[in-house]
Simulated assay, not measured.
Amino acid sequence: MNNRALEGKTAFVSGSGQNIGRATAVQLARMGCNVVVNGSSNFAAVEETVAAVEAEGVASLIAMGDMGEEDAIRTIADAALSRFGRVDIVVNNATRRPHKPFLEMTEDDWHGVMDVALTAVFRTSQAFLPGMVEAGWGRIINFAGMKAIKGYNEGAPISAAKHGVWGLTKALSTEFASKGITINTVSPGQIRKDNKTEDDPARAARIPAGVMGQSQDIASMVGYLASHEAHFVTGQMIAVNGGETT
Rank of each mutant, 00 (worst) to 15 (best):
134 E>L: 01
134 E>T: 13
134 E>K: 12
134 E>F: 03
135 A>T: 09
136 G>S: 11
136 G>I: 12
137 W>N: 11
137 W>I: 08
137 W>A: 08
138 G>N: 03
138 G>M: 01
139 R>W: 05
139 R>P: 12
139 R>Y: 02
140 I>D: 00
140 I>C: 05
141 I>L: 07
141 I>E: 04
142 N>Q: 01
142 N>S: 06
142 N>H: 03
142 N>M: 04
142 N>F: 02
143 F>K: 01
144 A>D: 10
144 A>N: 07
144 A>L: 07
145 G>A: 07
145 G>F: 04
145 G>W: 02
146 M>G: 11
146 M>V: 14
147 K>R: 13
147 K>Q: 13
148 A>R: 04
149 I>P: 01
149 I>R: 04
149 I>T: 06
150 K>Y: 04
150 K>W: 08
151 G>M: 09
151 G>F: 08
153 N>L: 10
153 N>Q: 10
153 N>A: 11
153 N>H: 09
154 E>K: 13
154 E>A: 14
154 E>M: 14
155 G>T: 04
155 G>R: 06
155 G>N: 10
156 A>V: 15
156 A>L: 14
156 A>C: 09
157 P>D: 14
157 P>G: 06
158 I>Q: 02
158 I>A: 01
159 S>T: 09
159 S>A: 09
160 A>V: 14
162 K>M: 00
162 K>S: 03
162 K>A: 00
163 H>S: 12
164 G>R: 10
164 G>W: 11
165 V>Y: 02
165 V>W: 00
166 W>L: 15
166 W>R: 11
166 W>P: 03
167 G>C: 03
168 L>A: 11
168 L>V: 09
169 T>S: 13
170 K>T: 09
170 K>W: 02
170 K>Q: 15
171 A>N: 10
171 A>F: 05
171 A>V: 09
172 L>S: 05
172 L>E: 07
172 L>H: 02
173 S>M: 09
173 S>A: 15
173 S>E: 05
173 S>G: 08
173 S>I: 04
174 T>K: 15
174 T>S: 13
174 T>N: 14
174 T>L: 14
175 E>R: 10
176 F>C: 06
176 F>W: 14
177 A>E: 04
178 S>Q: 10
178 S>K: 15
178 S>I: 05
178 S>Y: 02
179 K>S: 15
179 K>G: 01
180 G>L: 07
181 I>H: 04
181 I>K: 01
182 T>Y: 07
182 T>D: 13
182 T>P: 12
183 I>L: 08
183 I>G: 03
184 N>E: 10
184 N>T: 08
184 N>A: 09
186 V>Y: 06
186 V>K: 05
187 S>A: 15
187 S>E: 11
188 P>L: 03
188 P>E: 07
189 G>M: 05
189 G>H: 08
190 Q>D: 13
191 I>T: 06
191 I>G: 03
191 I>A: 06
192 R>F: 09
